[in-house]
């Protein structure tokens, strides 16, 4: 079947088979930052933003995304400028193996859009669906806090 999706601002008309999951289609289209670590929606590596909400693209059929706008990590930086969450992850050395980072960063972006000043507990709660085996989450939580600070600072500058 043919589905229409917008990925990172590009409108795409894609052929997908009935049983194909969204992660498979996105990876096939070349969005390799979307990771498939479990196919049961438990590791969070396949997280993408679907109309702004983080979803596990491994337990969603591609057909269900028809008509949606999708952001993958490849689409987060603007004109070569990192998003504040990306900057913060880099600055505090939050990624270790980096396999969970795409999903982790996108989940954090969605959190900060909804809640620009989260507590550490709220950050931990938001990230609970994204599993990391390397870090023990400390530097990831720190990075999200720092990103929130950066974004509030910039919003203040603009105002």
């Amino acid at each position: 079947m043919r589905i229409r999706i917008t990925v990172n601002g590009r409108d795409l008309d894609v052929e997908a088979s009935a049983g194909e999951t969204l992660v498979e289609v996105l990876r096939r289209l070349g969005f390799k930052s979307v990771k498939d670590g479990c196919y049961t929606g438990t590791c969070g590596g396949c997280t993408v933003l679907l109309d702004g909400r983080p979803v596990a693209s491994c337990i969603m059929l591609a057909a269900q995304a028809d008509g949606s706008s999708i952001t993958t990590l490849e689409g987060l930086a603007r004109d070569g400028r990192l998003h504040p969450v990306q900057e913060a992850f880099l600055e505090v050395n939050a990624p270790q193996c980096g396999f969970c980072s795409p999903g982790m960063i996108l989940t954090a972006v969605a959190l900060l859009r909804r809640n620009p000043d989260p507590t550490r507990e709220e950050i931990r709660e938001a990230l609970a669906g994204n599993t990391c085996r390397c870090s023990g989450y400390v530097k990831i939580v720190e990075a999200v806090s720092l990103a929130a600070e950066k974004m509030r600072g910039r919003a203040g500058d603009e105002a």
Binding site: S33, L73, E74, L82, Q86, F89, L90, G98, S101
Partner: peptide
């Protein structure tokens, strides 16, 4: 020194390539 990882930028940009990629 607390320097960013040499591969950090490619990771946060989603450009890092793993075996299957």
């Amino acid at each position: 020194k607390r320097l960013p990882k040499v591969d950090g930028r490619s990771i946060v940009l989603g450009e890092a390539r793993y075996t299957k990629d």
